[in-house]
Design a protein around this nucleic acid. Sequence first.
RNA 1: GCGAGAGUGGUGGAAUGGCAGACACGCCAGACUUAGGAUCUGGUGCCCACGCGGCGUGAGGGUUCAAGUCCCUUCUCUCGCACCA
Length: 813
Amino acid sequence: MAKYPFAEIEKKWQSRWESEKTFRAVEDPAFPKERRRYVLDMFPYPSGDGLHVGHPEGYTATDIYCRYLRMNGYNVLHPMGFDAFGLPAENHAIKTGTHPAATTHACIDRFRAQIKSLGFSYDWDREIATCDEDYYRWTQWIFLQLFKKGLAYESDMPINWCPSCKTGLANEEVKDGECDRCGTKVTRKRIRQWVLKITAYADRLLEDLEGLDWPEAVKLMQRNWIGRSEGAEVEFGVEGSAEKLEVFTTRADTLYGVTYMVLAPEHPLVGKITSAAQRAAVEAYVEAAARKSDLERTDLAKDKSGVFTGAYALNPLNGLRVPIWVSDYVLISYGTGAIMAVPAHDDRDWDFAKKFGLPIVQVVASRKQYEGGHDFSKPPAECDIEDGYSVNSGEFTGMPTEDAKKRIIEKVEREGLGRRAVNYKLRDWLFSRQRYWGEPIPLVHCDKCGIVPLPESELPLRLPETKSYAPSGTGESPLANIPEWVNAKCPKCGGPAKRETNTMPQWAGSCWYFLRYLDPKNSGAFASDEAVKYWMPVDLYVGGAEHAVLHLLYARFWHKVLYDIGAVNTKEPFLRLVNQGMILGDDNQKMSKSRGNVVNPDDIIRDFGADSMRVYEMFMGPLQVSKPWATAGLVGVSRFLEKVWALGEKPVAASSPSPELAKLLHKTIKKVSKDTASLDFNTAISQMMIFCNEAARLPELPRSLWESFVLLLSPYAPHLAEELWEKLGHGKSLARESWPAYDEALCADESKEIVAQVNGKIRERFTVPAGTPEKELEAMALALPKVREWTEGKELAKVIVVKDKLVNVVVKG
RNA sequence: GCGAGAGUGGUGGAAUGGCAGACACGCCAGACUUAGGAUCUGGUGCCCACGCGGCGUGAGGGUUCAAGUCCCUUCUCUCGCACCA
């Protein structure tokens, strides 16, 4: 049998789809809202390496789903674009002097061609690239809205600095103390930065997760990242000083157990309260801590360090005098940067107290201890962080932890010593990068007027041309070296002003790209209200799990801001999220150049065709799990498509199929429909293989049977299916043909094989008409020779009958 | 350390609490051929005194007439977080 001419067929149909604009999406009001779907892929960063077999996995999944939806009468928006600002192009520019735009556009062209070679049904008229002026104009516009709402501010807090990328990083971009991008150890650096107040949206970002159809794991990661915790801020007096020491605690019930206080080394009070005797030691400690990177600070987590300040704090509840220490186990960036230490009920405080010989007082007891008359005047044997009953706690002694918390906070509030408070792990988003290849931040610094936003009419603020892309060396972006660009007029007073030289991080463009697809050519707005209303929100968003917090949290934040200013109509951008699993190398390891296990989609398409590539990637296993690539497995899928092609060469008959085959067809339609709708593509393909194996036995194919099958196959192997459809005499693409319907009655078997079990073990099988009553099944089973053999001489305890399935005879003895 | 998920043939993987291993790869045998990753037919979890008997879903318990599936304990792997008071 000749290999089917996939190369020819695929080229033919791809160019036909393109010239006929088969997959153009139009905002046709004839489709009611519930008949519209927005199906989105996470757009790629077009790297110089080209497409990876991991990319087409998600893209194939959404493509199959979209094709299925169209055939089921949905109007589908399915766009593709490019996340095009980013460091690799800039680094290449530094080395070679090539403009990053040139590099990027070359990469985009390559990516686009590769993506097109897989025959995806994108509406290419809506393609966008985040580095295009026409696109980043609106990224800048959104930034200005954030600025105007007071959600963007300058700060020169110490930031995470990647010495290799020569740029600041958001907390989310630091993994294990290393740069998320290049793996370089992150250090700390103080430079002026732009920061977005994402924390102002913390509660909403948390609450609105509830209604989303997202993987629980991703929601959990976001919840943990936001890290909301409820507690109280309590003020401690400082002995011999007017200063107040404020701490945040979630365990107000342990206030009587405070035996010392700890300030973060960066805490402003450190310098003020340190005694003369301790000053030298404290200063040395603070300096040493400042020199440590975040990684070093967490590396030393096991072994606590610290210095006594010589000062004492006064417990607001019991007046007890406790020493104030400085230690880097307290973080300046969380809560108030100071803690009340309760070593009896906090592991970290326990370790610290043990190391420095500080007192430990038990104030919470387990029920057992409490009722057993335990002696609470002695220090406890171990640290216990569980809830229980308050002890050694004055008027609160005896209360369960929950009550004690509430009552103590009430008392603290009543007496003006503190207040109920909520804290978040989430920090504001470090939004500026000291790089060239990103969106310029559309602000100027004017001596007279301060920070002034550019008028919206002056957008886009274009990146200037330059010869040198190298960082300025001062930690500022290369833009700072271009005086013609930096020196500008203040839009407010007309006086001299300097442009902001920081650029935006790569996340900026991807925060809203799904909105630009709605109306990509609009020059008066990022998208028209009509387009937003027509398509939003995104019904299905498919992409890698690596974006679980970063991109998805940032995009949600921007979307909420846009919602607040009335620019979009939904609180959340992505209704349903699916993470495709990673495709590993055939050695079960992550694909990487250094391991030499990378598979190039171009090679696969050349040797086996795009349809084989598509079907194989879907046949490997469930979309959501990681699975290793096996070219041997691909061969199996390729053979399947060859077999389909061979079927297409059989004569087509007007006859109707045999009842058995008709039944198989209807079962196949049912299973493929259900599994495609639920993205269970692997089992849908398996069912089509079963159908083909049967159909291959026929000398000729009944037309109705074969046409239905070709339509079922078309979302999976669209080129092959189109060709077969044409061979069947149809002049038009099958992309908008109706999806085959199945007859439920025809799916049911009229006879069933019943399993006869004795004590749960299968002893015999027999066939009966479907729907045979339980009573009859029982009688038939009991009469079987094998069953009689195993039940002989034993007492019949009971018989369980499951209609159309089994009879289980339970005997004793 | 904490949190989440996953462990099924030689391999990828199927199984509303009801026949474990669909489909595919690989392998074995045969047919047709004589080499462009061919096609077709049959077989293929393990053990066995091969009697259609026994054992089998990481391990150990439990619930149930019936457990890969539900519950408890435990081990291993993957991912995420990691002094967040």
